[in-house]
Amino acid sequence: MPCRVVQTVCFLLLSCLTQAVVAAPTLSNTIVGSKHDLSISNYYGIDASFGVTPSDQICVFCHTPHGANVDLNNDGTTDTDDTLRPSAPLWNRNISVASLAASFTPYGSAPGYQSSTLNTVFSASWVPSPVSLVCLSCHDSAMANSGSSGIVTTSGSDGDTHNLTNMPNRSGAGTANCGACHPDGGDPPPTWWQIGPDMSDDHPISMPYPPNYSGWADDFYPAPNSVNGWAGVKLYQGRVECPSCHNPHNPGEIVYIDNSYPSVPVTYAPFLRETLDGSTLCITCHKM
């Protein structure tokens, strides 16, 4: 974001405006304490009822330094980006569904609304890219909830790892942090963070950024870098993915303490790469 401000300032200087000096925003620029912090320091105190000892690790719920999952889409080959690096960063979660195409319902497939443009992009065989499957390995009831026999127990022998490739503390006890995802206790996790597998009601992902299609330039701004996008909003190999808009490590400023409205200051929540104030995030791409 500071970079963006610099851009803006330069822009305005070019516009012969001299007095604008804008301070960088101060955000809670850390995953610690955010909703992506599943460690004991951020849990809600119900794990004792399960007899578990929550882990105090943070990164482990997504990342592992060794033995990482490099094949998120289960196609038998390493998922790579354009530089042939693994596209899933030392990922510690698995996608366990048998068929991605059968599991996910793409955008635009709902009856009623027919987009004459997007329907040419999303077919029944559409699947999310590994870059987005990273996120969906939690934000999808089908995968994060896989298994039915309960959670990782103190014995660690259940086998339902909630799709974690490598459990925190593989020695056994003290591995889980149930309350982070089950704030109400034994009930299923709240559904509001479950994005998939029906993604017909979600912004489309895993498609080339539209200006790569002819005839769409009227509706979208060209990206300064057609592969990587903007300073704020990212593209991944020229494609729109979950992390195009979301930065999973930076929750933005969490200021909402309940669901009362109106809310207060501009934030980058939830985990956004641009503010929604003035819909800045949206109009980075959308020429409106």
Partner: peptide, 24 residues
Amino acid sequence: ATSEERICLMCHTPHNANPAGPLW
């Protein structure tokens, strides 16, 4: 709006949209 500054959300939402329309 009285105080809301978001523009797009008056019609669109990125998640949990009404599939009857474009992220409606």
